[in-house]
């Protein structure tokens, strides 16, 4: 090993960042953990709320989603869930798609589709919550 002074081709900034060839560090991992922690109470709330609404008529479901607390939690649930799903799908694509072009296409596609889905869901909740 040569000494770090003088012979290294790595710039001081690159060495300080400490990221290497991938150009990213722990951000993806951290986001996955953060969204998973948020989803524990949100998912439990949603599943048991939906379960207690099983067989209910339209007016009851609408009245439930129109409550400010339900609408707020539903919007947060949707946003965090789509974020978490994309983080997971990205890892799956990275692991199993071995062509660089196809991998990148799949990752871009899932991100676009997730934003579309999340906006559709949030707009639906808002329409119910604000539409009267």
């Amino acid at each position: 090993m040569s000494s770090k002074q003088g012979t290294s081709l790595v710039t001081d900034l690159a060495r300080a960042r400490g990221l290497g060839a991938s150009h990213t560090g722990t951000e993806h991992w951290w986001e996955q953990r953060l969204t998973s922690i948020a989803l524990v109470p949100l998912t439990l709330w949603f599943i048991f709320s939906i379960a207690s609404l099983a067989g209910a008529d339209y007016a009851t479901v609408k009245a439930w989603l129109q409550q400010p607390l339900s609408a707020t939690l539903a919007i947060i649930l949707v946003a965090v869930t789509f974020h978490h799903a994309v983080a997971g799908m990205e890892v799956i694509f990275e692991d199993y798609i071995h062509t660089k072009c196809a991998k990148l296409t799949a990752i871009i596609a899932i991100k676009f589709v997730a934003v579309l889905g999340a906006v559709i869901c949030i707009l639906s909740v808002l329409k119910l919550a604000l539409g009267g």
Partner: peptide, 8 residues
């Protein structure tokens, strides 16, 4: 998504 759209 479909369920929420249907509700709306």
């Amino acid at each position: 998504t479909w369920w929420l759209v249907a509700a709306a």
